[in-house]
Amino acid sequence: MSDDERELARLLLEAAADPGEREALAEAHRQLEKDLLRLADPLPPPGFVAAVMEKVSAAPRPVSAVEVRSAVAIVAVALAASAVAFVRAGASAEGLALQLARALVSAREVLVGGGSGLAAVWRTGGLPLSVVLAVVTMVTLVGLRRLVAPENAKVVT
């Protein structure tokens, strides 16, 4: 006898002390159960699924737990890097500003150098460079699309 059956027997005993009365009650419940088991859930109105999907498509895309963890990790790394930079600058606002200014000057030098390099490459092989850049951009865009919405990627071939 399962727990459920034992519980049912206890409830019947509680409801009817007389054995005959108890058997009649049990039979009435059995009959009622037969009728109840014949009931079925109705179908929702036509267009229900379409209406749900319309609402779903209008709603913002759900954020997955992986994405939340990634975002938290990025913010944590950025904060840690800021804290390290602050400490290395002597833990003072003046030191941090000085370090930022140095970084800006270095970045300017890197940009100017990079620009000169690109200009030289363009002068010597402009067409191949354009083709390579176009291919890299396309591959990146297709990859990003596949990553964001796999079902859409099937349409774009």
């Binding site: 059956e5 049912l8 019947l12 049990a26 419940h29 059995r30 037969k34 088991l37």
Partner: peptide, 9 residues
Amino acid sequence: MRTLALEAP
């Protein structure tokens, strides 16, 4: 006793 419901899938 065994109810019908207990046998329901």
